[in-house]
Amino acid sequence: MKQKPTETILTMRPAARARRPWGVLGLLFVIGFGALLAGEGSGQDQALSGRYTYRFLGFIKLFSISLYWETDDAAQARFDGRPYALRFDYYRGFSAEQLVAEGNKALAKEASEQEMARFAESLDRINASYLDVSKGDRYRLDIIPDERLTLSFNGKELIAISQPGFGEFYTRIWLGEREECQAIKNALLPERLSEASQG
């Protein structure tokens, strides 16, 4: 039976009014409202695995995360080296500073000092790419494990980082081992719930 996406309360508050400054680098994560947009930013067909919605105070939708695999059978997909993508759809505005701060805070809890030092330059590059987001904006991360991470904004590629391992490191913001990541992974990878119930 297909699991319904899990929802949670996020402590990050929406920006009162998110400005979209002029600049060459636009960006921020956002994910999709459906599989019709699943292939955006990728030359291959992709299958939707699951979706997770962040809510403030339990009922105000902030943004959603969707996981896509480059496979025709998402039910069989695993983090086993195959390419995947995370899409972020925003329902409220956020400043670039808010997004970067939340991501850095999560990584500081996930990664060792050695890892933070190893990926510091790449992290600075992707953080510098962020702009404020408004309702309806869409960000996407395409990851080829141990090879490349690409960040796109509303369908336009903004930055590609080729440092091996950075994609897996960066997506630990949402797919890490922290307690708050477990509900996200259960929603994005429904087979985790099936396996747990069988065990």
Results as ranks from 00 to 15, higher is better:
Gln3Pro: 06
Pro5Trp: 05
Glu7Asn: 08
Ile9Ser: 15
Arg13Ile: 09
Arg13Cys: 08
Arg13Phe: 07
Arg13Pro: 10
Pro14Gly: 07
Ala15His: 03
Ala16Glu: 13
Arg17Gly: 12
Ala18Cys: 12
Ala18His: 03
Arg19Thr: 11
Arg20Leu: 15
Arg20Glu: 15
Arg20Val: 15
Pro21Ala: 05
Gly23Val: 04
Val24Ser: 08
Leu25Cys: 09
Leu25Asn: 07
Leu27Arg: 08
Leu28Arg: 14
Phe29Val: 14
Phe29Tyr: 12
Phe29Thr: 14
Val30Ile: 08
Ile31Thr: 10
Gly32Arg: 13
Gly34Gln: 13
Ala38Ile: 01
Gly39Trp: 02
Glu40Leu: 09
Gly41Cys: 04
Gly41Trp: 06
Gly41Asn: 04
Ser42Pro: 00
Gln46Ile: 03
Gln46Trp: 06
Ala47Leu: 01
Ala47Phe: 01
Leu48Arg: 07
Ser49Val: 09
Gly50Thr: 12
Arg51Thr: 14
Tyr52Ala: 00
Thr53Arg: 10
Arg55Asp: 01
Phe56Asn: 14
Ile60Glu: 11
Ile60Gln: 13
Leu62Ile: 11
Leu67Asp: 06
Tyr68Asn: 06
Trp69Leu: 05
Thr71Met: 04
Asp73Phe: 00
Ala74Leu: 02
Ala75Asn: 14
Ala75Thr: 15
Ala75Arg: 15
Ala75Cys: 06
Ala75Gln: 15
Gln76Ile: 07
Arg78Asp: 11
Phe79Arg: 03
Phe79Trp: 10
Pro83Leu: 12
Tyr84Glu: 01
Ala85His: 04
Phe88Gln: 12
Asp89Tyr: 12
Asp89Ala: 10
Gly93Tyr: 07
Phe94Asn: 09
Ala96Phe: 00
Ala96Glu: 10
Gln98Ser: 02
Val100Tyr: 00
Gly103Glu: 13
Lys105Glu: 14
Leu107Gly: 09
Ala108Asp: 11
Ala108Ser: 13
Lys109Gln: 15
Ser112Trp: 00
Ser112Gly: 14
Glu113Pro: 03
Glu113Leu: 04
Gln114Gly: 10
Met116His: 07
Met116Glu: 04
Ala117His: 01
Phe119Pro: 05
Phe119Met: 05
Ala120Gln: 13
Leu123Ile: 08
Leu123Thr: 15
Asp124Thr: 14
Asn127His: 08
Ala128Gln: 07
Ser129Cys: 13
Val133Asn: 02
Val133Cys: 00
Ser134Pro: 02
Lys135Ala: 13
Lys135Thr: 15
Asp137Ala: 02
Asp137Thr: 09
Arg138Tyr: 03
Tyr139His: 11
Arg140Ser: 09
Leu141Phe: 15
Leu141Tyr: 14
Asp142Pro: 00
Pro145Gln: 01
Pro145Tyr: 05
Glu147Ile: 03
Arg148Ser: 06
Leu151Val: 14
Ser152Cys: 02
Ser152Glu: 07
Gly155Arg: 09
Lys156Arg: 10
Glu157Gly: 01
Glu157Tyr: 01
Ile159Glu: 03
Ile159Gln: 01
Ala160Val: 08
Ala160Leu: 03
Ile161His: 05
Ser162Trp: 02
Ser162Asn: 13
Ser162Ala: 15
Ser162Cys: 05
Ser162Arg: 07
Gln163Thr: 06
Pro164Gly: 03
Gly165Cys: 02
Gly165Ile: 00
Phe166Glu: 04
Glu168Ser: 04
Phe169Glu: 11
Phe169Pro: 13
Thr171Lys: 05
Thr171Asn: 06
Arg172Thr: 01
Arg172Phe: 03
Trp174Pro: 03
Gly176Phe: 03
Glu179Gly: 00
Glu180Ser: 10
Glu180Ile: 05
Cys181Asn: 12
Gln182Asp: 09
Leu189Asn: 02
Glu191Val: 10
Arg192Ile: 14
